[in-house]
Design a protein around this nucleic acid. Structure first.
Lengths: 225, 225
DNA sequence: TTTAAAAAGATAGTATTACTATCATAAATA
DNA sequence: TATTTATGATAGTAATACTATCTTTTTAAA
């Protein structure tokens, strides 16, 4: 007997719900593995079909194209992380402690969640770091946004922004600081591993250092203002 | 009589130097216009060739593929901005004032530089905001980095990091703060215009607000540490 | 249990993209 | 003036990004 956590996704993101069938779940599972392995640019539905043992046409019945699939995966990730965050910060009163906990969750490699057998959250987290911003850095970001594709990301940003305001009601840029934290949790990690001279963590390459940087950024900023 | 500022680019970025011929300059000029207009995903060498009035093969003689061209444009931009920054902060003693000036230069829409007739810096700046991170968010970032494709970006980051250290020698994360400033100057601008709820600037959509946010982020952080 | 609906598999085909190759011509240079 | 070098014109290929159709299998309702 398992408690199955079911994430309800925006229906405009898919043609057929991938969580509703075995093939759909295979698409999610293997797309994560394949994007992780080859990168998003080299990834395509033909390779994915071969990996799964189905046909290209089969995948197109679930997702319009590979970009929609990427947007789906990022939305899934932010929804899942939102759950994780609300779970792990549930009964913490002090907003500063809550915020620190969130920074840690944002910047730490996640371990695979047993409740979602077809999603490897550790790989997905890496995908979000390297490919996540491609989901919105497009010419059609406006239309995608109108269809609420980025709602999970925006919701998380709002949650963090509110906690920042709780910490320091006078602070003028809670939302921008929230999006800065989220983006930098990923970019500093990417830089550390790929362009280390852009960071101060090149020697050890420890996630804990990214966390310390973000905590310092947030809390010395908040205290002063 | 004009003072022509010639930017010397990494030779591994092109097959034939685009600044050495009229066709090359046309490729730069029209690729900027076309990427600006259609976005990088929809942009291709066939459309570019039509725009210029040459053939696809002609463009391939200058650039291996469109990704290399994007890397070229971003490297060009960071080199050019590096010049602008050193020019405009030349005789400023106070590192804090210098840093503020740099933040302003990073976050302000540039006006077109008359010295480079074939590059519209205003459009290029917009391209860097929307497409710039795609230059390094790839599976081959490591090899690209080995070939020094990102040197101009890294140099600028180092310059800013050093100024941060001058302002506050004890501060532990000068390079990470520098890359955060650079990235956020762009991302907050992109969010402001496309996903405004991720920022605190949605109402006015003023660049000056991004600048204020960054100044606050940097200087309240630095004062405390 | 039968029957119909829905999903998946198999196969084929098209338009576009991302190139490479070749040859002729024009322009620059020695 | 001869020769190198850049460009133009044209063609062709392999891969990508799909769409269409038909058959078989699975599911689910009557």
């Amino acid at each position: 007997m398992k408690l199955q956590l079911q994430i309800t996704m925006n229906e405009a993101l898919f043609l057929r719900n991938p969580e509703s069938s075995q093939l759909g779940k295979n698409i999610l599972k293997h797309s994560i593995q394949l994007i992780y392995k080859t990168g998003f640019e080299a990834f395509n539905f033909k390779k994915l079909a071969e990996e799964i043992g189905t046909t290209e046409a089969g995948i197109y019945r679930y997702f319009e194209n590979k970009h929609k699939l990427l947007v789906y995966l990022t939305a899934w990730y932010w929804t899942w992380l939102g759950f994780q965050i609300s779970f792990h910060t549930n009964n913490i009163k002090d907003p500063a402690v809550r915020l620190k906990r969130i920074i840690k969750l944002l910047a730490t490699t996640v371990e695979d969640d047993e409740n979602t057998s077809y999603v490897n959250e550790r790989l997905l987290h890496q995908i979000i770091i390297s490919e996540g911003s491609k989901a919105y850095l497009t010419k059609h970001v406006g239309e995608d946004n109108k269809q609420h594709f980025f709602k999970p990301y925006k919701d998380l940003c709002a949650v963090i922004g509110n906690i920042i305001s709780e910490c320091q009601p006078k602070y003028k840029y809670p939302k921008s600081l929230a999006s800065t934290i989220i983006e930098m949790a990923h970019f500093q990690n990417f830089f550390m591993n790929n362009l280390p001279s852009l960071t101060d963590f090149g020697k050890n390459k420890e996630e804990t250092e990214v966390i310390s940087f973000l905590n310092d950024l947030v809390f010395s900023g908040l205290k002063k203002s």
